[in-house]
Amino acid sequence: MARFKWVGLALLLLMGWSFVGDSAAETGLRIQIVGSTTVLPVVSHAAQQFMASSNTRILVNAGGSGVGIFSAAQGRADIGMASREISSNEKKRFKNSDLKTHSVGLDAVACMVSSEIYQSGVRLLTRAQIAKIYMGKITNWKEVGGPDKKIVVIDKEHHRGTRHVFMRYVFGNATQRTPGTILVTGSNNEEQTKIAQSDSAIGMLSFAWINEDVRAVIIQDQNGKFAPTLKAVQSGRYPIMRELSLITRGEPKGKIKAFIDFVKGPEGQKSVVENGYIPVGVETSKP
């Protein structure tokens, strides 16, 4: 008897596997998207709408721009989300992958501080000051007109898009190493949380993450002062701008192309605006 039980179990398992195998053949309609947490809200939102009107299933996962570009290049994901350009290093590494970039919106990165610092009067930082803070040469808020408090310098993981763009503006080098750093965070949400929880932090985040606890300061450089307002961004004067893009390996086809077009189209662009970014096609003089 016992023998039959085992044989039966084995058969059941086999059947289970063949069933799983069969259904795999039917579902070619799956798009896997991974990457930047800055682009994530837009794409998630668009994906939900897209899925409502089609039988395609779209998987959206976070990971950061580096992961997005890497996954797309390796064919591990159908679309990579990136909030920065493909770096020269990555271009060299993935030169056989024929990566194509599809811009879906524009975003600005602000220099963020904890609300306590903002309230105490630090409303403006010069580019040189930010650089010194990140290099660990300025370590107290009183040196830049704030209270006598040590600065909690918050950095992002080195492959994150927001970091690349911010560091390129501040230092002219996207992969600048910053010995002043005190905490390293990953996703935008994680960094926002850390800045809000601290009362003396500085960090970098996209405009979409500004709120009462996490405030953006005016940035000053040799070209003037730039307030972190949507108006400044739309006028194209704001200095830390970047494209939000979807990245594919080779030219997209079929459902993947349909989805990219959907994001670029009116409904997708609406979700770009709703998430606090600037739609493509708005006239700005890009940096």
């Binding site: 799983v20 195998g21 259904s23 795999a24 579902t27 799956r30 998630s44 994906a47 899925m51 299933r57 779209i58 998987l59 959206v60 996962n61 976070a62």
Partner: peptide
Amino acid sequence: TFSGIQLPQSYSDPVPTLQTHILI
């Protein structure tokens, strides 16, 4: 995966889980 999949339809689908849901 965080979103986009409810139940796996083939062997190559990821699934959402309680553990990673809490993490995010």
